[in-house]
């Protein structure tokens, strides 16, 4: 499996689904700082799903609220169907009422050590799988 292989190499291709450009760029920087590879930014359900596919992402960071509305959870679900794990990065995690298939949840404002730990955990889970 593509994703598992990437996690084994140590550097992960991470796609960002976030509609605030400034926050997206910060996440891109943090991903680089952690030694991983940002592979694209999208701001809606459609562009997020297409972007992840086109970039061959190993992992996606997904905000709950995107440009086309509260479509983040739906995107997490669609990505899970394709075997791409995701981490929810949101200021509205209290709104998650239903079960979801995100590998992890990180609150905004983002604490970089938390995000890093979440990415490593997803990686560890993959290597174990």
């Amino acid at each position: 499996m593509r994703a598992a292989g990437a996690f084994q190499r140590g550097s992960v291709r991470i796609f960002i689904c976030e509609d605030n450009a400034m926050i997206a760029l910060m996440l891109e920087d943090l991903i680089e700082d952690f030694g991983h590879e940002p592979c694209g930014i999208a701001d809606s359900f459609d562009t997020g799903l297409d972007g992840c596919r086109a970039a061959g992402a190993d992992l996606a960071l997904v905000d709950l609220d995107l440009l086309d509305g509260p479509t983040g959870l739906k995107l997490v679900e669609a990505l899970a169907e394709e075997g791409v794990p995701s981490i929810i990065v949101s200021g509205q995690v209290d709104l998650i009422r239903q079960a979801h298939r995100a590998a992890s949840v990180v609150r905004k404002p983002v604490v970089d050590t938390e995000l890093r730990a979440a990415i490593e955990r997803v990686g560890a889970g993959r290597r174990g799988a």
């Binding site: 605030n20 400034m22 926050i23 760029l25 910060m26 200021g91 509205q92 404002p109 983002v110």
Partner: peptide, 11 residues
């Protein structure tokens, strides 16, 4: 407020 704080953090 969380959104604004995150924007300021990013900035």
């Amino acid at each position: 407020v969380k959104n604004i704080l995150t924007s300021v953090q990013a900035m």
